[in-house]
Design a protein around this nucleic acid. Structure first.
Lengths: 342, 342
DNA sequence: GTGAAAGCGCTAACAA
DNA sequence: TTGTTAGCGCTTTCAC
């Protein structure tokens, strides 16, 4: 059997090739591929057979150029390696797949310049939308950059009026609850192991909660706080150890996240400090590790995966209907374990 | 001051707009943007000024269509959430950024169908290359699918002759070393906590190493092995606990990875089994957690990040010079801690 | 139901 | 050093 396209070996198969081989117009093939518009059943069958025979694959790049829709969204993350963010990524990715979208992943390292570059790059790739995790750039700059994107959802940042959807976790309330719990079990000299210079939303909200709780409960201003989160568990542990050996009057420590809490536990271990008798410890996240007996960390379960899911959902709402930029706030759940007294 | 393009508000700025405004040809602008070809200094200055003034951003989609190069690579990962893979991602991403490339991330969940879809999608996106982590698809199918890609590097799989570069970690030797270490410290009844049904390379190689070590050291065939890796730490811990309570004669357990090892430690704790006195435990990975006192896990440091870096490097070699498909094998490093006797 | 023509924004090859 | 002419492979509009 002869075909009009036998000389196509090695060449990329295009819509034209399929059309020629099937003896129909390009548009008809396009209709079959995209399952839109009316095509007679017979024609459809014939076209589909040819598509299979030739091993045709649509060129999404050409489609994007012609249609101005890319079926790609961008995802900016400050640290891929971080357990927290990898769950967010998973959530976003899953909803993207559900919507037949692909995810372009950009690691920003929580760095101004990289964030700028990433936004630009995403714009140049003409992505249909962008999930932007924990912006470091000042609001003024965001106001300039974001309007150029077709759709934006920000995670971990104050809403920027009418410019982007936002998804946040209510760590403010969680922090208040943490302090209340510690006071309930008789602790008063509460410290906070926090990230280094960090004005970003997730930290700021914790801090506001901490201050509010101290005010309400009429506690002293928290003792010097340890700036120790961000590096490896080992680094954090060393810094906390050094700090602890100069601060013997602390009886409770709240940590920015579970990783820091584990590091803090390790520091206490090395100093012979008993948990929770001498010092009680509270974390944030509820990583799976916090559950094992040797750690048994009191913490707040933060719905990381759900954060990603929510962000992606809002984004697709925007993409599909230029829907309003909404704000979602997810709650965390207190999990009492053995690193704090009963 | 008047410009020829004052009526461009709202419209996407194209190369043409810049060219018109600057009073040069499109190609000249293209030369300035891409910094290739000769352009007089004066012209360059003028064009750059216009680019800035108009806020022009090249359309990468159009460029890709015209040039058949996408500056995007695909990255297929069986599980984003997994600590191991997130490091690999970071490695790939970092080299990609270095090469001015973006990464399209696809989560395959270690699932046939998803892997197939992902490869197709990547092909349709006309990515310049593809890093494929731990293929689950049978070799026969890979032979069909992979040649359609411009460049391929596979992580965690036997080399497929002339079809893709490969990056692997020599866990075979590591496993032998693990057994030797355990025998050295007097253990003979060694068990292996392994993934469920899993014929994939990383597990198979460990298993081959295990068998070889048992042969060399004339040990009995390892006791029933626990299929317990893959779910959460909690799941694994429960399964190991259940199994352990029926197998009191084990004096050492090698675990597929550190996460499983931590779960195993937890199971022992709950059963009142002393580590390392009653049972010695060895893991694979050296996650940062393994270092803390409460865990102090004997393990093998696996260069995860470096795996990603190596994969990306090979890929770019292929992309830039249709270089040979090479094979890289990285070594792991034994790390002795307190979960095994001195 | 189907087709023809135009064009998305860029690069490539060749001129000038 | 710069410009011209064709496409890249698809969708879109409008005609038949």
């Amino acid at each position: 059997m002869e075909s009009k396209t036998d000389n196509l070996i090695g060449k990329t198969i295009t819509l034209d090739d399929v059309a020629k081989e099937a003896g129909v117009s390009r548009k008809t093939v396009s209709r079959v591929i995209n399952a839109n518009g009316y095509v007679s059943e017979a024609t459809r069958q014939r076209v589909e057979a040819v598509v299979r025979k030739l091993g045709y694959r649509p060129n999404l790049v050409a489609r994007t150029l012609a249609s101005a829709r890319s079926t790609v969204i961008g995802l900016m993350i400050p640290g891929i390696t971080n357990r927290y963010f990898s769950q967010v990524i998973a959530g976003v990715e899953s909803i993207a797949q559900e919507n037949q979208y692909s995810v372009l992943l950009l690691n920003t390292y929580g760095d101004f310049a990289r964030e700028r570059d990433a936004i630009r790059l995403l714009e140049e790739h003409r992505v249909d939308g962008l999930v932007y995790n924990t912006p470091t750039l000042p609001v003024a700059e965001l106001r300039q950059l974001l309007p150029r994107q077709k759709a934006v959802v920000i995670i971990g940042h104050d809403p920027i009026e009418g410019m982007a959807g936002t998804v946040n976790v209510d760590v403010y309330s969680a922090m208040i609850q943490a302090v209340e719990h510690l006071v309930d079990v008789g602790r008063r000299r509460i410290a906070y192991v926090k990230p280094g210079i960090d004005e970003r939303y997730p930290h700021r909200k914790r801090l506001e909660g901490l201050r509010e709780a101290f005010r309400r409960l009429k506690l002293d201003v928290p003792p010097l706080m340890v700036e120790a989160v961000g590096g490896s568990i080992e680094d954090t542990s060393n810094q906390v150890e050094a700090w602890l050996s100069t601060k013997p009057d602390v009886d409770a420590i709240i940590c920015y996240n579970d990783e820091a809490a584990v590091a803090t536990i390790d520091a206490c271990d090395r100093l012979g400090i008993k948990i929770p008798d001498d010092i009680a410890i509270v974390g944030f996240d509820d990583i799976s590790l916090s559950r094992i007996q040797r750690i048994s960390l009191t913490t707040f379960r933060i719905p990381r995966y759900e954060v990603g899911v929510a962000a992606a959902r809002i984004l697709f709402e925007q993409i599909h209907s230029t829907g309003d930029t909404s704000e979602v706030i997810l709650q965390s759940a207190f999990v009492k374990r053995n690193s704090t007294p009963a």
